[in-house]
Design a protein around this nucleic acid. Structure first.
Length: 306
DNA sequence: AAGCCTGTCAACCGCCTTATC
DNA sequence: GGATAAGGCGGTTGACAGGCT
């Protein structure tokens, strides 16, 4: 769904706003759409709606998740009356509706991270996305396929044309032995960084596995989404009510504790976010050897040109 | 102005992994 | 241990918008 979809969603929200929806938003909205949408779908091919999500469907899904939390996707179409398969609901939530998603242009820092991580991890977009908590794997994949891959190709082409160009040459000439040493260094650095991150969390009195506050903050974001339609912000009861599912919510809302040790809000609130060891490692061109350093420098130059 | 081309991105598909019985 | 269901992931597609000729 493009920008028109966003406008439609806004229009839908305005419409709902004008109807002065009371505190029991979920009941009202769900009952309305369930009654309109007929029998609950299964995941059979027949009767399952495909294509772009409508604002109404988004509202139903967000309302449902606000109340029940994400997870148990199989039950979502049944309980909401959405004529969508469970996968579609999950995808819509994780890629678009989930709170905390940052949309729009990627920053230079993000670009470098993606390039660096792609070089290290390959096309493991979910893993890469875990280092950029505000971005979805789909977004990163799309960005890679539409922007970065092209630029890197261009870079390769440039390297072919200019065989004497030292930087690309050095990347290409990296030997297997050098690469393995780099890799070992990377693994070592990653381990250290992970230990550092874990020790920081312990000092903060937080578990690295469960974060009860995760859904609370997410619920706040959802309530922000719902804000203005006369809905009370996600109540503490709602947050508490979801406590039993906090583990599941934690894992699906914030797939991984950011290994960078920075929350989005922390990143956004500080104009000059401090780099953790791991983040430094990811951005530190030294750590991956001169070859990649040159490579990244080259791409950086390219980006500046582009 | 109209048609074509290209870029972008949301969504789907199919496969794989994990969990449960 | 095998079967089945559910969730997760990566590749791909298709619709749409904007630019170009």
């Amino acid at each position: 769904m493009g920008s028109s979809g966003k406008i439609d969603l806004d229009a839908g929200l305005c419409l709902l706003r004008s109807e002065k929806i009371g505190p029991s938003l979920c009941d009202l909205v769900l009952s309305r759409f369930v009654s309109e949408m007929g029998r609950p779908p299964c995941c059979d091919k027949d009767g399952v709606k495909k294509g772009p999500w409508t604002p109404e469907e988004d509202i139903v899904l967000v309302s449902y998740i606000q109340e029940h939390g994400p997870g148990n996707w199989r039950a979502v179409p049944t309980n909401t009356g959405l004529m969508r398969c469970s996968k579609s609901c999950r995808l819509r939530w994780t890629n678009y509706l989930r709170p905390g998603i940052k949309r729009g242009n990627f920053t230079d820092q993000e670009e470098k991270l993606i390039i660096h991580l792609q070089a290290l991890l390959g096309n493991r977009w979910a893993a890469i996305a875990s280092y950029l908590p505000a971005r979805t794997d789909n977004d990163i994949k799309n960005y890679w396929n539409t922007h970065l891959k092209k630029r890197l190709k261009k870079l390769e082409g440039g390297a072919d044309c200019q065989k004497s160009s030292g930087r690309q040459q050095s990347y290409r000439s990296i030997t297997k032995g050098q690469w393995e040493r780099c890799l070992q260094t990377d693994i070592h650095m990653a381990k250290r960084a992970l230990c550092e991150a874990l020790s920081i969390e312990e000092r903060d009195g937080r578990s690295s596995i469960t974060r009860p506050s995760a859904y609370a903050s997410s619920a706040e974001n959802i309530s922000r989404l719902l804000e203005g339609w006369g809905v009370a912000p996600a109540s503490s009861a709602s947050s508490q009510g979801s406590a039993s599912t906090s583990r599941c919510i934690t894992s699906s809302l914030e797939p991984l504790e950011s290994p960078l040790g920075l929350s989005d809000s922390a990143r956004e609130s500080s104009s000059e976010p401090p780099l953790s060891l791991l983040e430094s490692w990811l951005l530190d061109v030294e750590s991956v050897g001169n070859g990649l350093e040159s490579f990244l420098d080259g791409t950086g130059d390219l980006f500046r040109e582009g």
